[in-house]
C-alpha cells in the first residue's frame, strides 16, 4: 500500500517535472524554429485543427449577440436583396463553370514548368483570423525543404516554407512581418520590396517599399515577383496596389498591397519544388 502511494507520488512528481521541463523548453525559445513544437505538432495537428475550428465558432457566437440589434434592421433590407442576388447568383454560377474550365486549361504546371508542383492541405494555423504562419500536410517525406515557394492554384503568392518536418511543414506567408519579397510593378516596370507589416497583417495586407521616384504607380497596379531575390521565381502575382501613401517626398512614398491570395480562408496550397 505504502509502496503504491509512494510510487503514485513519485509518478506525479515525475510527471510534473517532465511537464515543467517540456514547458520550459518550449517556452524558452520564442523562435519560430521550434523543434519540440515540431515533434509535438505531428501527433497534435488534428487536435490543433479542432481547437482552431472551435475557437472560430465561439467568436461567431459572441459577435452574433453583440450585433443583434443591427442585424434586425439589416434583415429587412437583406431579404429584399436575397431575391435579387439569387438571380445574379444563377448568372454567376454560369460564369464560375466557365472560369473553372479556363483555369484547368491554364494548368499551373505549365506556368512553372521548371518546378514540380506539390499540392497540400492546410492543417493548422496560429491563433488569429489570418493565415500568417500555418502548417500544411506535406513534409520532407514529400521532398519539401525550407524556402520553397508556396502558391495557390490561381497563381497567387502565398509565401515560402519556413521549416519542414517529416509529414508536415510550416509556411510563412507574405503578410507575416518577417516576410520580404522582391517585387516588380508589371505596368510601369519598377522594382519594389513587398513586406509583411505588423499592423497591416491584421487586415490581411502588405506594404510595398522602395518605389523609385521616377516610377508611376497607381491604385490597381499588379505586383508580381521579380525573381531577383533568389527564393521566389519570376512572375507569381503578389497582389495589387490598394493605396499609395506619401508623407512629403518620393523618399517616404509607400503603397498598401492587397494580396492576390485570400489569407482568411486558405485550404489548399501548392509548393513549388
Amino acid at each position: 500500500m505504502l509502496n503504491l502511494i509512494k510510487s503514485k507520488v513519485f509518478l506525479i512528481i515525475l510527471l510534473t517535472i517532465v511537464l515543467l521541463v517540456t514547458i520550459a523548453l518550449t517556452a524558452n525559445s520564442n523562435s519560430k524554429l521550434n523543434w519540440i513544437g515540431n515533434i509535438l505538432s505531428v501527433p497534435l495537428s488534428p487536435v490543433q485543427k479542432l481547437f482552431s475550428a472551435a475557437g472560430q465558432k465561439i467568436d461567431e457566437a459572441v459577435s452574433f449577440f453583440k450585433d443583434i440589434e443591427a442585424i434586425k434592421t439589416e434583415n429587412e433590407e437583406l431579404r429584399k436583396r436575397v431575391s435579387e442576388l439569387e438571380r445574379e447568383n444563377r448568372e454567376l454560377e454560369a460564369f464560375r463553370e466557365k472560369n473553372e474550365e479556363l483555369r484547368k486549361a491554364l494548368n499551373l504546371k505549365d506556368r512553372f514548368s521548371d518546378y514540380t508542383v506539390i499540392g497540400s492541405n492546410v492543417i493548422a494555423k496560429d491563433a488569429g483570423n489570418w493565415f500568417d504562419i500555418f502548417r500544411i500536410d506535406v513534409g520532407t517525406r514529400d521532398g519539401i525543404k525550407a524556402d520553397m515557394p508556396v502558391v495557390t492554384n490561381s497563381r497567387g503568392l502565398v509565401g515560402r516554407i519556413l521549416t519542414a518536418d517529416v509529414t508536415s511543414s510550416k509556411v510563412i506567408s507574405i503578410i507575416d512581418e518577417d516576410s520580404q519579397v522582391a517585387g516588380w510593378i508589371s505596368k510601369s516596370g519598377g522594382h519594389v520590396i513587398v513586406r509583411g507589416d505588423f499592423t497591416l497583417k491584421d487586415e490581411g495586407l502588405c506594404r510595398m517599399d522602395y518605389i523609385a521616384g521616377d516610377i508611376d504607380v497607381e491604385v490597381g497596379d499588379i505586383i508580381e515577383t521579380s525573381g531577383l531575390g533568389g527564393i521566389y521565381p519570376k512572375g507569381i502575382v503578389i497582389g495589387e496596389v490598394k493605396e499609395i501613401r506619401m508623407i512629403n517626398s518620393e523618399f517616404n512614398r509607400y503603397a498598401i498591397i492587397e494580396p492576390a491570395v485570400d489569407f482568411k480562408g486558405l485550404e489548399e496550397v501548392y509548393v513549388l519544388k
Binding site: 519579397v181 520590396i193 533568389g230 527564393i231 523618399f251
Partner: peptide, 22 residues
Amino acid sequence: SWETVAEIEEKNHIFRGISTDV
C-alpha cells in the same frame, strides 16, 4: 545595386541583422 537589395531583403532570414535602406 538593386539586385543586392532584392536578394538581401528576400533572404532576410539568412542575412540576419543585415538590412538595406534608401
